[in-house]
């Protein structure tokens, strides 16, 4: 049975992601120390929280190094969810820490103001699928997914080059990205009912 690691970095609610992944036939483990990621076939980084606190939490538990080693050098399948997607990029307007930097670009904040929709963006939104990817295999375009966020990956640099899903909130942004073994989405597949479970099945099915 494939070993799937859910990365615990000390913040956010892992429970929802855990509940969804545990419905599938995998050996699922919550891992709170980077050295225990060594034998995982897939690594999931979920989470709601702030960018800097998240990166610091990853570093403090030895996950940052382990992720570079396992995902970049080892080619292990990676799935970032919400904040976990933002970590994949170089930096965020939310803080001063450096991201994993696997994709080029900077995470931005939705603008506040009368001419823009309310922030945070909470709720279901259409995600359109610009190209065939593993994540969206068999999922129609557009499909609804559940979002909770104030920061987003702009459709610039790798956010555009590797966009696997595109959503709109005042303007279009990257709702999901995929490149080789690295996939990530801004929305919550674990809370997006059948479309989300289908996406998790797609990810696990490719292991």
């Amino acid at each position: 049975m494939k070993k799937v690691a859910i990365v615990d970095y000390g913040l956010g609610n892992l429970r929802s992601a855990y509940n969804a992944f545990r419905c599938f036939d995998v050996d699922l483990n919550v891992i709170d120390a980077g050295d225990r990621l060594a034998d995982a076939h897939a690594i999931v980084v979920p989470g709601v929280g702030s960018f800097d606190a998240g990166i610091r939490g990853l570093r403090a538990r030895g996950h940052l190094e382990a992720l570079q080693r396992r995902v970049v050098e080892g080619g292990v399948a990676f799935f970032g969810i919400c904040l976990g997607m933002q970590f994949v990029f170089e930096s965020s307007e939310e803080g001063s820490e450096t991201g994993l930097g696997w994709m080029k670009g900077r995470v931005s904040r939705f603008p506040d103001g009368e001419n823009f929709p309310k922030v945070p963006h909470i709720g279901w939104a259409d995600v359109r699928v610009p190209r065939p990817t593993r994540l969206f295999s068999g999922i129609e375009s557009p499909s609804d997914f559940y979002f909770v966020h104030s920061y987003y990956v702009p459709l610039e640099m790798d956010g555009a080059a590797h966009a696997a899903g595109i959503a709109e909130y005042g303007f279009e942004f990257a709702a999901a990205v995929e490149r080789d073994n690295i996939c990530a989405c801004q929305f919550h597949p674990e809370k997006s009912q059948l479309a989300g479970l289908k996406m998790i099945e797609n990810f696990l099915g490719a292991l």
């Binding site: 419905c23 599938f24 479309a195 479970l197």
Partner: peptide, 15 residues
């Protein structure tokens, strides 16, 4: 409103 599309997903370990 959200469209509730149907996808067949096998959930062998659903509680």
């Amino acid at each position: 409103m959200r469209r509730s599309s149907f996808y067949k997903v096998a959930l062998p370990r659903r509680p």
